[in-house]
Every structure is written in C-alpha cells, then in structure tokens.
Nucleic acid binder design. Structure first.
Lengths: 113, 113
DNA sequence: TACCGGTACTCAGCAACACCAGGTAGCTCG
DNA sequence: CGAGCTACCTGGTGTTGCTGAGTACCGGTA
C-alpha cells in the first residue's frame, strides 16, 4: 500500500472487519493474520484490538471466550443484528464514495470534454 | 451519506479534491459548491479550506490570486507535477482498498467453507 | 444612508481513528 | 531456564474532519 493508506483506512477498516465477521466469527489474532495475508501488511496489531473493543462497546458484535490449545484464551467475535444493520449502512456510504471516485477517475469532472 | 461518512472521508477527501483539480483549476468556494452538487452535502465549508491550505503547504498545488466581481479575491488552485504524482499514488492505494472491499462484499472472504 | 444576503476565506477548539511502543500471559521445545 | 509463537491489552501521539464563529467585499433595496 502507500503512505496514504493510514488515513484512508480511517473508517474503512471498521467496515472491513465487520465484513469479515459477517462471513464468519473470528478472533483478533486471526483477523490480523487474515488481513496481513490479504496485503494489509501495514496494519498494526494494536489497531485491530482497539477496533474490536470499540465495536464491542457499541454493541455491534457478540463475544465469546474460547480456550486455545496454543496460548491464552481467544475472544471470538461474531456479528449480531445491530452489527449487520451497521454494516449495511457502511456499504451504502462506501458505494456512494466509490461511485463518485470512479467518475472522477474516468474522465474527470463535469467540465470534462 | 451516513454517520460513517465523516471517518471514511478522512484520507479520501484529499484525493477527491486533488482529482477535481486534476481536471481543472478551481477555488475553495467553487469546490465546496461542486461537492454539494455531487451529493457531499455534509462536508463543512471550513473543511475544504483547511484541506486546501494543507495541500498547498505540501507543495502539491500552485496558487494564484484572482479578483472576483462578487466578493473578495479568489485563491485559484491548480495541480502541479508533484500533485499529479501524489494523486497517482492515491489511485493506487484506493484501487487496492476498493478491490479488497469488493471481494469482501461479494461472497465473503477467501476461507470460504 | 443603513441593512441584508451572497461571495470568499480564516481560525480556534474538539472528537475519532490508526499508529507506535511496550507490556502481560500461556504454551511448547531444546 | 530462555526462545519463540500465540493471544490480548494499554497509554500517548499525529492527522484529519467538524463546529461555530469571525472577517471582508460587493450589489440591491428600503
């Protein structure tokens, strides 16, 4: 990614994590690894945990503690109804933004040729 | 847009403005009006001016003061070479993010079953 | 003249978010 | 014991957009 990634992630990262949780339940360490796999190499571990705390406090996810064979117990997060609703809103905002940017990229703005 | 727009704009708004300036020169008030037209109704006027100051200080744009018939002189911004390069990087980061989100939206994450 | 509304830009203080750097804790293996 | 992996948490920092107010210039109108 690039230098601009940090700022661009603000607000989007939350949606990304919620979207992941919409597919299946997961815990912090797992999500971090998953993101690194996908190319988000610059996302700090602490960022994910802070984000998970946030969405938990907002009531967007349910949490369950599950013992691990390889270390401390995992906090497994799963999206609840409120979270699904919130994610729906995220997609709307994202779509809007995405469309606008696509238009800007192709041909420039209204004054174009 | 939605409640989530504010955070999502962080990092993207800059790219949006640079993309506008890539199409043609413009001044703050004009850009604000243009954005409102395009549906960015919640963007505060002050935000655009602050952003313009920022990208000017970073040397991404050239500025020219032009007298106006209807008020104080306008500060007309135009993208320079460094700005064009920066915009190019923005598009790369955006593309990456966009692809990842598109994959997430469609079918869930790679781990499938 | 005095006022209003539109144009155009500026500024101080605030909140949210990602980053950094470090810490805690459990497990396995040599 | 020490190293390394797993798994989570925390305090302080910088960037960014928002709020709300202010300055200034102009034309039209009463």
């Amino acid at each position: 990614m690039g230098r601009q990634a940090t700022e661009m992630l603000k607000g989007t990262l939350e949606g990304i994590v919620l979207a992941i949780l919409a597919g299946r339940s997961a815990y912090g360490y797992e999500i971090t690894a998953w993101l690194r796999d996908r190319g988000f190499t610059e996302i700090a571990e602490g960022t994910i945990y802070a984000l998970l705390v946030r969405i938990e406090q907002r009531g967007l996810v349910d949490v369950e503690k599950v013992p691990s064979e390889k270390g401390p117990p995992r906090k497994v997060y799963s999206l609840n109804d409120e979270g699904r609703e919130y994610l729906e809103e995220f997609w709307k905002t994202w779509s809007f933004l995405s469309e606008q940017l696509e238009q800007l990229r192709e041909g420039g703005n209204g004054s174009g040729h």
